[in-house]
Amino acid sequence: MSERFRYITLATSLPHLGSLFSQAKVPLSEFRLKQRVKMLSPEHQRLLNRVIEVTAWSGVARFANDQDVIRLARVVIDDLKDNPTLQDLVRARMETRTAIAALRLRHDGQEDAGTISEWGFGRWCRQIETHWTDPGFGLSHFMPWISEANRLIQAGEHIAMERLVLGEVFSQLDHHGAGHDFDFEAIVIYVLRWVIVERWSRYSTDAARERLETLVGDILTPPTAADTARENPRPEEVLS
């Protein structure tokens, strides 16, 4: 099967993922996804794994420090020399991570950027360094979401922050995916979207499980006098 026909078959065999927060579960299991991407050539399978390694959280979590992640990103970008769209995508993801890392460091009390080359990547490092005290590091024009991210971090709203970041990354994927329908880039972008949707659905499952456990715990715990009074209020308490 020629390359082009192979990508058409593969792209149309993958179910539509929909918008990010609209689905309670992933429309395609990990097992099925792995089966489908076997249609890729061995070289493209290797490149796909490299992109996932550097962009997905599960890939970078195994590294002990930021410098290893930055080194890996540079190697992967070099490796993707035939796919400039994917190079841009990896760069954009690393720059987003750098901005979020800067927000978190500042929230943790760091007074300046320090040696930003050790933990930052991309074209905004100098800007972040020189505008450390600015809420959006002077990047609000280029990254409109950064001010909102700063507000959420300051307010300690971690779930809203995660939602904002995942939404932003999803938008980046949409942007890079424009003009790629039936090619390698389209497949990589689909898989990266799948990773995000799967991650969000796992959060939802975990949250639901936690809620269920709390409810079960409440039911199994013997009610106190105060609980009984709350469950069987007097009429005047209901109306008040």
Binding site: I8, T12, L14
Partner: peptide, 12 residues
């Protein structure tokens, strides 16, 4: 081209 897409769609 159309057939490749149809085969992929049938998988899904």
């Amino acid at each position: 081209l159309g057939g490749s897409a149809a085969i992929g769609a049938m998988l899904d």
